[in-house]
Design a protein around this nucleic acid. Structure first.
Length: 706
DNA sequence: TTTCAAACTTAGAATCCCGTCC
DNA sequence: GGACGGGATTCTAAGTTTGAAA
């Protein structure tokens, strides 16, 4: 049930040998972590706000507040940040140096393609342009991390935007495309037709074969029909969406085959929408909005065995939308003939617009992009809290190990749950309303059926076998040796319980988090995930990477460290459909390169022999030997690079690195590693990631310790 | 004490887009 | 110059946490 998505657990379990976290008995459960954190130099942990201030003191001299003015109406004209001169000057020298350095490095690794013969001047020109562009970006960047934080709860002082972008209205089907019911042509009302199209568009997807999906869809579709339609259309199996489906496919095909000019026109039109709706002014700085588009209507696609899959996600009207902006800002115009549900001015929240969706009744928000101040500051704070945990994690571990002996059931349950959360990086596990979502669990909501106890397994004592569906219905499968106290407690918790009963029946996330926040301000269950992920990265990087390696090898080490974290956090992905083929292709390339290398080597040998025969006096022959040597070296480097790539790809088959990189790994660890290893940051973070982590890239020195 | 709503982060899939190869 | 592959980007579902109301 609900396991289609599962990745083969056994295989994954094997993959776990990569991570160092599965310690053995007692010494222990998290021996590596403890040892590691002991080994690290203890540093005094400043509170986040103080840190900001000290950073500011360190870096900013007489920096005036940004004074760019709001330009308004009729449509919000958003002014690009123009930092004041002093700021400009303050950063120019440094950034220029940094940029030039990084570009040099980048080009060193990727020499410009030779095929387009560009003159030296042109190359120089391009280089200059690139530097200029980077400088421009750097100059326009809002260095919010050097500014004072607002008082508690206040997220902004001024906020102005153009409201969300609404998806285009439905365009009825052309006259030559028909729907058939029970073999007979039938013209549908516009409302019913639109929903029929949603289904027809998905016919190639597995979803439409699922019973629940079909039933939910049909029920909601019938609600959109006229009474006449409803009386005729009684059975989904008698519905023929063939022509609508074909039309949809033709459209998709046509879009793919558009001419260059058509594509360009479309691109420009999209850019216009982004320009108009994609940005806002937050405290007089232009910031990108993350999701400025209202979600279009369609059929709900839940993950796993979602009981509501297939239900109709309704079209959102301006009348459903709440706008949030500052009092003195121009209120965005609703689409003609419409009005907003409400306009409010709440500066204790970060959203610009919100609406309630009809499937779960939850609120959806329009918020800023990850590279914005609001998101970045929160992110930075998150890692500071995780670092704070580092300083007291030993005490906390001792506390919950002690709690295992408690006479109170709730305390023992809390201790075991914490042990799992810490050791295995499980999520908190809130309780969920049955029938509303897929049946997934986290730590606190584990049921007896999700674990199996083994006194002995694979040469280990006290092994707990986990098998459950976690967030997004991703299977968690792991066999973990635990300390005997935990093992015995688990046995007790399972006494006289049915498989469907809660393992921690006295515990919930709120109780757990209350306890945690009493141990350390700001501590919650998820902080353990952040902390363990980041400390693992730092530790693995230390262990795996060598300064003497070449860049490709260093990157493999980085990816392996990243992978250890992804495995810890159970970040999986479906193996790409093209995986086998692409591996085969790569292998073919490797084989070809090997042949080439063999040839190059024999040519070198021949050249050497000829040179030797002439007594090594012939300059031309000597030059030939040198050339052949260089060719062999090039070949070897290429081969190594490809082999490393193949290893990396194979190891990554069903593991997703992105999630941990983006959400769990303190970027300062990576930045410091890059500096130490002399690896350009561009090799680790792409453009978007560099923007998101701009604060870390800017402030981190090579001696940073998480 | 429990429930619920709100706000925000985390997540994998789908889609887009761009460089490489034939 | 078109197909292909894979990384980047977009999309939105699914979690966590908090705090107020019942």
């Amino acid at each position: 049930m609900g396991r289609e998505k599962c990745v083969k657990g056994e295989e994954k379990a094997k993959g776990r040998k990569l991570k160092k976290l599965d310690g053995g008995e007692s010494a222990g459960a998290f021996g590596d972590l403890i040892n590691h954190s002991d080994a690290l130099k203890e540093e005094s942990v400043e509170d986040f706000a103080t840190k900001k201030k000290s950073l500011k003191r360190k870096r900013v001299k007489d920096e005036p507040k940004d004074g760019s003015s709001l330009s308004v109406s009729p449509r919000l004209k958003i002014k690009t940040d123009q930092p004041d001169e002093s700021e400009e000057e303050a950063h120019e020298r440094n950034s220029k140096k940094r940029i030039e350095k990084s570009i040099k490095k980048e080009e060193g690794d990727h020499p410009l393609p030779k095929k387009t013969k560009r003159t030296k001047e042109e190359i120089e020109e391009a280089k200059k342009l690139k530097i200029q562009k980077k400088e421009e970006e750097e100059k326009n960047r809002w260095r919010w991390w050097e500014e004072e934080k607002y008082e508690d709860g206040v997220k902004w002082k001024s906020l102005e935007h153009n409201g969300p972008y609404f998806p285009p209205e439905y365009q009825p089907l052309p006259d030559d495309v028909h729907f058939y019911y029970d073999g007979k042509k039938m013209k549908l009302s516009v409302a019913a037709e639109e929903v029929a199209l949603f289904f027809a568009q998905m016919l190639d997807h597995e979803y439409t074969t699922k019973k629940v999906f079909r039933e939910n869809f049909f029920k909601d579709w019938r609600k959109e029909m006229t009474p006449e339609e409803r009386s005729v259309i009684q059975d989904l199996n008698k519905c023929d969406f063939g022509e609508i489906h074909a039309m949809h496919k033709t459209k998709v095909e046509a879009r793919k085959n558009m001419t260059k000019e058509e594509k360009q026109t479309l691109k420009e039109a999209n850019q216009k929408i982004v320009d108009q709706y994609g940005y806002c002014l937050l405290d007089h700085h232009k910031e990108r909005i993350g999701n400025f588009k209202i979600e279009p209507p369609g059929l709900f696609r839940g993950r796993g065995e979602h009981p509501k899959q297939g239900m109709l996600k309704k079209r959102i009207q301006p009348e459903d939308v709440i706008i949030n902006c500052s009092k003195d800002a121009r209120i965005p115009d609703p689409p003609p003939g419409h009005h907003w549900k409400e306009v409010r001015h709440d500066n204790t929240v970060t959203w610009l617009a919100s609406w309630t969706e009809n499937i779960q009744g939850s609120i959806k928000y329009i918020m800023l992009n990850a590279n914005s101040k609001l998101k970045g500051e929160k992110d930075w704070e998150k890692y500071e809290i995780a670092r704070k945990l580092k300083s007291c994690v030993d005490d906390i571990r001792n506390t919950y190990l002690g709690d295992l002996k408690s006479r109170e059931m709730v305390t023992r349950q809390r201790a075991v749950a914490l042990y799992f959360i810490d050791k295995l990086a499980l999520r908190a596990g809130n309780e969920k309303e049955e029938g509303e979502t897929a049946d997934t669990v986290g730590c606190c909501s584990l049921r007896v059926e999700h674990i199996t106890l083994h006194e002995q397994l694979d040469g280990n004592k006290c092994v707990v076998e986990f098998d459950f569906l976690g967030k997004d219905s991703i299977r968690y499968y792991n066999k973990v040796p635990v300390i005997s106290k935990v093992f015995k407690s688990l046995k007790r918790f399972m006494d006289n319980k049915e498989p469907g009963d809660e393992l921690f029946d006295r515990l919930n996330t709120s109780l757990l988090n209350k306890h945690l926040s009493s141990l350390m301000p700001g501590l919650t269950a998820k902080v353990f995930r952040t902390y363990n992920a980041s400390i693992t990265l730092q530790q693995q990087l230390k262990e795996l990477s060598n300064k003497s390696d070449n860049v490709a090898e260093k990157l493999l080490s980085y990816n392996r460290a990243n992978r250890a974290v992804a495995i810890l956090c159970n970040h999986q992905r479906a193996p790409p459909k093209t995986f086998e083929q692409s591996m085969a292709n790569l292998q073919a390339k490797i084989d070809a390169r090997k042949e080439q290398l063999a040839l190059a080597k024999s040519e070198l040998k021949q050249a050497k022999k000829e040179a030797k025969d002439k007594g090594n006096s012939d300059i031309k022959l000597q030059a030939l030997v040198e050339r052949k040597k260089a060719a062999v070296k090039r070949c070897e480097e290429h081969l190594l690079k490809m082999e490393v790539q193949a290893t990396d790809r194979e190891e990554n088959k069903q593991i997703a690195l992105g999630t941990s990189k983006l959400n769990y790994l303190d970027p300062r660890i990576s930045v410091a590693w890059c500096k130490n290893m002399e690896v350009p940051i561009e090799k680790i973070y792409n453009k978007t990631q560099r923007e998101k982590f701009a604060w870390a890239i800017d402030m981190t020195e090579d001696d940073f310790e998480f």
